[in-house]
Design a protein around this nucleic acid. Sequence first.
DNA 1: CGCGCCCTTGAGAGTAGTCAAGCTTTGTGG
DNA 2: CCACAAAGCTTGACTACTCTCAAGGGCGCG
Lengths: 235, 235
Amino acid sequence: MGMMDARTNDSLAALQLLKGLPPDALEDVRAAARIRRVPRNARLFNQGDGPVRAHALIDGYIRISQSGSDGAQVVMRFIRPGDLFGSVALFTDGRYPADADALTDLTEVSWSETDLAQLMDRHHRIATNFIGIIGRRLEEVQNRVRELATQRVEQRIAHTMLRLVRHGGHPTADGITIAFPLRRKDIADICGTTLHSASRTITRWEKAGWLTTRDQRVTVCNLSEIELVAEADQP
Amino acid sequence: MGMMDARTNDSLAALQLLKGLPPDALEDVRAAARIRRVPRNARLFNQGDGPVRAHALIDGYIRISQSGSDGAQVVMRFIRPGDLFGSVALFTDGRYPADADALTDLTEVSWSETDLAQLMDRHHRIATNFIGIIGRRLEEVQNRVRELATQRVEQRIAHTMLRLVRHGGHPTADGITIAFPLRRKDIADICGTTLHSASRTITRWEKAGWLTTRDQRVTVCNLSEIELVAEADQP
DNA sequence: CGCGCCCTTGAGAGTAGTCAAGCTTTGTGG
DNA sequence: CCACAAAGCTTGACTACTCTCAAGGGCGCG
């Protein structure tokens, strides 16, 4: 086994989907995997495309967004290293339900439907992991439904920023920086508001010194103030 | 095997979770099942309760609703005969993420976590069914996120009514009647609006002759008008 | 240098929430 | 069986949050 394979196996072991698998199973999984490198701003797949594969992200960041028949767009989530994505449709209708765009240069692996089915059959742990992953996703999305249904724009933006910081943030000199580029439009499309409202809110927070943005990189300096906005009862 | 067991097995065979299982597997599943009858308006479980069981509804209707730390409430979904419910948490944190209320007298079955795990182990089809079920749920909830994020109240109510009609509707003399009681507050809590806005909209539609409500039973007479509202580009 | 993309900001309009009051239906206990 | 309480529904007036429309500025890239 060459250096390349060893490194690949390490990468695979870090995937949520493959957590707890023994080395020989990992090797089995690797044999069926297709590895791809994708440049920043490329489209990984389009909403409506098929046949679907099960994807996992080794390195980099991805934005998953969905558009309705009316053209309105929503950002569903951001994919971080280790995450599974684009794979739920394997068990439903076989078409990707959303677009996937590379926010950075990235490396992904994927498996075909039949290969994944066989792998799940041989290594039951993969199926269990899969259920846990989409179960947690379901709970997250349901929380988002509650937010959208009950909170105001500023509060939703606050919650979103907190989630992004906790999820995709790494500490820097000035605070916690979100690991991938984030446009105002992205923030709006996550929160179900307009570019304008998002811009106004973020600008206000920037002026208050709670965060800074340079070149689409957001750094949060004052978490606790944002937490206050997130938890505030609307007056 | 008595009459009772035979009827029970028929009921089980109709469950989504058990679709495609051979008779001997059904018998195995039945042996581990707990059957309960629950009266209208009773609470089946509370948000935060544990340990969770996997539930399926034989007969009747259930409302699943979630409340946030701020007290705001959202109706997550309605459970119909054959549906699986309250079981995702088995694979995540082990506590029910929402409340379940009986909208009618009903019959439900449930399995403990360990029993379900063993059943899935013995009958792989159960695991596959489970993945398909929560996968479809995930897509539904994501569509709801898009609706909440991009559409106005009236449009969301229209979509909701259409979904309820297609899902829980049965034809009657005057139109299609939704099979379970539906309060104005329920409609509001599904759509992320207030009781007042929901009331105004439904009353308006009632005056236009598109639907009628008697005793919390909603009958839709004019689907196409409502579809028009649902698809309308906002002027 | 010009074009495209992203961001900011102001003014005005309208959707939907809040507050308040009264009505109808349902359920319960005397 | 009636009466009253509780729960659900309707409606009006007012408020305000948020969107829409419009215009302009900054930055990077071809």
